[in-house]
């Protein structure tokens, strides 16, 4: 019991790790702030493509989505970070993470937005168009708000997944929270910094997870 406390919940080591881990948290939040809006926009574009009447656009969008849903994000990230330099494209860890997560998140956001768009009855579009609204106006003011409302729990749980995903950035030595915690662990040979990082993830994401469960129950009833 003492050993577990000593090895996993060592307050002294956690206190020592705290400044570095908090700095890492800043990077984690920065990645999220860049990657979530980018992924949502890319996903929306791909979703609109996947419900397009143009066959070429539709199939390209679906192929894009399926390809990046089949490829593990870490494989993508390592390919970009360690593979592309062989083609003379050398990206900084941050740029590599942004590009990799953008492609990965877009695919997941696209599937959610697509389901949302398909859940809005066609009569809504007809009503809007019959009042003289353009296709774009109809999308912005009528279809999209309803689509987002219908898939809000899925959108939120995708945001949770993205926050968790940022931990992969540690593999390409981007100094986010897990990277910072791992660094202190390797210096102290003690797992407490990892527990500390885990605790912060929990603090960050638990409210969101409860909120999602709440929404899902409300929709089910």
């Amino acid at each position: 019991m003492d050993a577990i406390l000593q090895q996993f919940f060592n307050i002294e080591i956690m206190a020592k790790a705290m400044p570095l881990v908090l700095k890492g948290l800043g990077m984690t939040l920065l990645i999220c702030a860049v990657v979530i809006p980018l992924g949502a926009l890319g996903g929306l574009a791909a979703a609109l493509g996947s419900v397009s009447h143009n066959r070429l656009i539709r199939w390209s969008a679906i192929a894009f989505v399926d390809l990046f849903r089949a490829l593990p994000p870490l494989v993508l990230l390592i390919f970009i970070y360690a593979g592309l330099p062989f083609a003379g494209i050398r990206l900084s860890p941050f740029a590599a993470v942004t590009l990799g997560f953008f492609l990965n998140n877009s695919a997941y956001f696209a599937e959610i937005f697509r389901a949302g768009l398909l859940s809005v009855p066609v009569g809504q579009t007809e009503a809007a168009r019959s009042t003289g609204m353009t296709a774009t106006q109809t999308l912005i003011w009528v279809t999209l708000p309803q689509a987002v409302r219908n898939v809000l729990p899925d959108l939120l749980s995708n945001v949770v997944e993205i926050v968790k995903l940022t931990s992969l950035a540690s593999v390409v030595s981007l100094g986010e929270m897990l990277h910072a915690a791992g660094l202190v662990r390797s210096l102290t040979y003690n797992a407490s910094p990892l527990v500390l990082a885990g605790g912060i993830y929990l603090l960050l994401l638990w409210p969101l997870i409860r909120l999602i469960s709440h929404f899902e129950r409300r929709i089910a009833s």
Binding site: Q7, F8, V160, V163, K164, L165, T166, S167, L168, S170, L178, A181, G182, R185, A191, L194, V195, A197, G198, Y201, L202, L205, W206, I209
Partner: peptide, 14 residues
């Protein structure tokens, strides 16, 4: 809520 990579490192090194 926990990133799987955090759990993996925790179990593997802890």
């Amino acid at each position: 809520a926990l990133p799987p990579l955090v759990l993996i490192l925790l179990v593997f090194f802890g």
